[in-house]
Design a protein around this nucleic acid. Structure first.
Length: 565
RNA sequence: GCGCCUGUAGCUCAAAGGAUAGAGCAGCGGACUUCUAAUCCGCAGGUUGGAGGUUCGAGUCCUCCCAGGCGUGCCA
């Protein structure tokens, strides 16, 4: 690939210059190689001379001149008017940048590589097949998902695709908090609604879930059993209704995720963990290993010994384990399942929890294995007025409503254009209106346009074979717009790597918009299919490369690439 | 009080420490007899919250201040 090749050439130029005594021998510095913002600065640019200046103590421009001479020698190999090598031009600029312009044939060869790699273009193997577990959404299964969960679904799924693209073996996991307090509150709420609907007076629990969906679930239960639960003993009735309501809520969540295109490999049940004794066993183990102790009638874990601000309760006075205790057992369970690395995507409201969880992992011999990605919250609004997203108050906009109104592609894209570090103000009405202008259509349109060109070509009897045209033919690509497009295509590989390493899928949306824009400009300026069969073949080939990258990129985001719009 | 995140165009947001801070939307003006006008071209829009500092270079890193969000439970 071009970037790697350029890096190697630059590194070689540095060591050769040092060997020749032109500069003092130093370790090759970390230098930047990037696409410059301005076209006048070449196709690629490096700050290698600036990076060397500090340790060498000579002016950056002098060093740049020395390196540039070496680069010219290496990059501009003779023959074919200087086009056979990697570079066409090497220039020292500004405070000491070296601007590089690629040779025409090198660009065309790279284009052929893009076509050759096809759906694997952008793939890396530095993950080495290491097993990653990515846990996300993990909403309490006591009602429908709300809009905020959509952000984690879109983010988690895209991140998993990115990680898989760079060579990790990724599993998606959803943790079900199907045990404990909130399940009991849920059961009590459903029971009360069930009784009300049956015409029996019932006291609604003080802290119960007021959402209308609870009534809907109760109605479904009533329709199922004809009210036969009404006369049963309270505890028994509540347990049964709670259990059936849970199944309904869970099925709903699974449907929502699948129809959003997010498939979880594992739905891990806290209940199984608890009922299998894993939580108690872990608490005992921590006590035995001197990592936990009893105080004030409770059991505490000594997380402060591992970087936490203070120790945390594992078992409350009265014997009930905390969520934290269960979470320790759960995360150790993940490790036992053979994962090399764990990633959790949590809302920012859980950030106070990160330190103690990592402390627990460290205490159990897994330092640095748990990575927590904190996503800032979605602030829901309706007509400019804030709406609290709470199952308790029941006032919420569901995830399904959003997807139904703005569509799956627009919803996914909407969530992915923003970095997870930024809080997202989300007005459902505005979202519906703005979905008409959603940049996702801009990107998809570029793809549809290319497909349209191919259809048109077919009608015209143009040769649509997918063979790479001969170099002679590709050399007909000579306009500024065509070069811009080719170079934009080449950015994809490094972008995928960087986005994966930085856990930043949003960069991909930005890139795809740039690629689409570059294509639209090209399209408006040049006809792909014309009477010139050579030029037609060359441009069709270029368009195909663009299409491939659009496909690969949209695929990572989990957004469809329609052939017509 | 302490901790994490954020503050960039009217709005929503970009910008691995790089050169003249960019897109979309909104606004104004243009381009369809030609492969899809969900497109393109142009204009306008900025003291990157403020003040210091680090260095060849700071929206980005450091310190302090201001503002907003979220935490700071024997809740989950």
């Amino acid at each position: 690939m071009i970037a790697r090749e350029l890096r190697e050439i630059i590194a070689a130029a540095i060591s050769e210059a040092a060997a020749a005594g032109e500069i003092p021998a130093v370790e090759t510095p970390d230098f930047v190689l990037e696409r410059p913002r301005h076209k006048a600065h070449g196709d690629w640019a490096t700050n290698a001379a600036l990076a060397l200046a500090g340790s060498i103590g000579r002016s950056p421009r002098d060093i740049a001149s020395i390196l540039a001479a070496r680069l010219r020698e290496k990059g501009l190999s003779p023959g074919d008017e200087g086009e056979a090598g990697t570079l066409r031009e090497v220039e020292v600029a500004g405070p000491g940048f070296i601007n590089l312009t690629l040779s025409r044939d090198r660009v065309l060869r790279e284009l052929a590589r893009v076509a050759g790699e096809g759906k694997d273009y952008g793939r890396w193997d530095f993950g080495g097949g290491r097993r990653f577990n990515v846990e996300f959404v993990s909403a309490n299964p006591v009602g429908p998902l709300h809009v905020g969960h959509g952000r984690w679904a879109a983010l988690g799924d895209a991140l998993c695709n990115l990680l898989a693209m760079v060579g990790y073996d990724v599993d998606r996991e959803f943790y079900l908090n199907d045990f404990g307090t909130q399940m009991e509150v849920f059961a009590a709420s459903v029971e009360a609604r069930y009784l009300e609907l049956s015409g029996v007076h019932a006291e609604f629990p003080a802290e119960g879930y007021h959402g209308t969906y609870v009534v809907d679930i109760a109605r479904t239960l009533l329709e199922e059993d004809g009210g036969s639960c009404t006369g049963r003993p309270g505890a028994e009735r509540r347990a049964e209704l709670g259990e059936r309501a849970y199944r309904i809520a869970l099925a709903h969540i699974k449907d929502s995720m699948e129809s959003f295109g997010v498939h979880f490999d594992t739905w891990y049940s806290e209940r199984e963990l608890q009922q299998g004794g894993a939580v108690e066993k872990e608490v005992r183990g921590l006590l035995e290993d001197g990592l936990a102790y009893e105080k004030d009638g409770a059991v505490w874990m000594a997380t402060s010994r591992f970087g936490d601000d203070k120790d945390r309760v594992l078992v409350r006075t009265g014997g009930a384990p905390t969520y934290f205790a269960a979470d320790i057992a759960y995360h150790l369970n993940k490790m036992q399942r053979g994962y090399d690395h764990l990633i959790n995507i949590w809302g920012a409201d859980h950030h106070g929890y990160v330190r103690r969880m990592q402390a627990a992992m460290e205490a159990r011999g897994h330092p640095d294995r748990l990575e927590v990605i904190l996503g800032q919250l979605v602030n829901l609004k309706r007509g400019g007025e804030p709406v609290r997203m709470s199952k308790r108050t029941g006032e919420m906009v569901t995830f399904d409503e959003l997807v139904a109104e703005v569509g799956r592609d627009a919803a996914r894209y909407l969530f992915l254009t923003r970095s997870q570090d930024t809080a997202l103000d989300f007005d459902i009405q505005l979202a519906v209106e703005e979905s008409m202008d959603n940049p996702v259509y801009y990107v998809q349109y570029a793809h549809a346009r290319i497909c349209s060109i191919l259809r048109y070509g077919m009608g015209k009897g143009v040769d649509l074979s997918e063979d790479v045209p001969a170099l002679e033919t590709l050399r007909l690509l000579a306009s500024q717009e065509e070069w811009d497009l080719a170079l934009k295509v080449f950015e994809f590989e490094e972008l995928v790597r960087d986005a994966a390493l930085d856990r930043a899928p949003h960069r991909l949306t930005r890139y795809l918009e740039e690629l689409a824009a570059t294509f639209h400009v090209f399209y408006n300026r040049h006809r792909v299919i014309s009477d010139d069969s050579g030029l037609t073949a060359a441009r069709l080939f270029l368009a195909r490369c663009v299409r491939q990258v659009l496909l690969n990129g949209l695929g990572i985001l989990g957004v469809s690439a329609p052939e017509s719009m």
